[in-house]
């Protein structure tokens, strides 16, 4: 392996011109609705809507729960990805399919499933309530669990991909140098997959921040404890005494927060020279 050199390629070289059309349509599909949001906004009323106590409370709750869910996903997701990546191909395939199940499931269904598992009459929920007096549904904890449920697959997939790319050769070398498994994980495996972990964390956090369906069913819509930004927007849009303008303002706030976080993580991800 010698020093990596990048060959300069003329921009756009090698792409059939015909493909620019669907590419443009795809880009428009993603961007135009957001531009529409900005155009439709009733700008004079935006500042008031954003700094309203209700909006700030929803934003605070969203940030806190999404952050907690992301930490939870990192703590359980990296080990899960490691187990999948180091399993035999058949077991790995099965585990991967099961792990990605929440991706193909409507979040609403996930919310119902969580309710039946952790609800008062649920499999685990009844035990928790009877033995420990703990009730999970319709609490902030339920929000975090619902967000983790839908966001975890994104983290696992991206970390597992990084683990497969990294392979086990560096780990073998580290072992022959006398490093035990824990040291190898900490000082070799984790740094090697860090780009994948960061990418997965971004996706995971973004997914948790935007989570609506599972949260609505499993955690409800109680202001201050479970009403996150998406639920606040939904509530405002349905006009519970508030105008749709404030729904748009809250949406803008969420979009801007999302963009800022993505940019921050992106700049951090590209700084280390790997």
């Amino acid at each position: 392996m010698s020093v990596v050199r990048r060959t300069a390629v003329a921009p756009g070289a090698g792409i059939p011109r015909l493909l620019y059309l669907p590419a443009a349509v795809g880009f428009a599909l993603l961007i135009l609705p957001i531009i529409g949001l900005f155009l439709r906004a009733d700008w004079p009323s935006v500042p008031a809507a954003i700094v309203s106590e209700e909006a700030l409370s929803a934003l605070r709750l969203s940030m806190q729960t999404a952050l907690a869910a992301t930490v939870l996903c990192l703590v359980v997701g990296i080990p899960l990805a490691l187990v999948i990546a180091r399993s035999g191909s058949r077991l790995a395939g099965l585990l991967r399919a099961l792990t990605t199940l929440p991706l193909v499931m409507p979040p609403l269904v996930g919310g119902i499933a969580l309710l039946y598992l952790l609800g008062r009459n649920g499999l685990i929920g009844s035990v928790l309530e009877l033995s420990f007096g703990i009730r999970i549904p319709f609490t902030t904890a339920a929000v975090v669990i619902a967000q983790s449920f839908v966001a975890l697959p994104f983290l696992v997939i991206s970390v597992e991909g990084a683990l497969r790319t990294a392979g086990t050769r560096f780990e073998s070398v580290a072992a022959t140098l006398g490093a035990d498994r824990w040291t190898v994980f900490r000082r070799v495996t984790l740094p090697l997959i860090m780009p994948g972990v960061v990418a997965g964390t971004v996706l995971c956090f973004a997914r948790a921040l935007g989570e609506f369906g599972a949260t609505a069913l499993f955690a409800g819509n109680a202001a201050g404890t479970t009403r996150t930004m998406p639920l606040a927007i939904y509530t405002a849009f349905n006009g519970a005494g508030v105008s749709q303008d404030s729904a748009i303002a809250l949406s803008l706030l969420l979009v801007v927060v999302g963009i800022v976080i993505l940019l921050l993580l992106r700049s951090w991800r590209t700084t280390p020279e790997l």
Partner: peptide
């Protein structure tokens, strides 16, 4: 296990840890 054997291995690929 490999890490307690005190056996050093050098292959054709140097496999230096890229982050160090």
């Amino acid at each position: 296990p490999a890490h307690r054997r005190r056996i050093g291995l050098l292959g054709q690929d140097p496999l230096l840890f890229p982050h160090l």
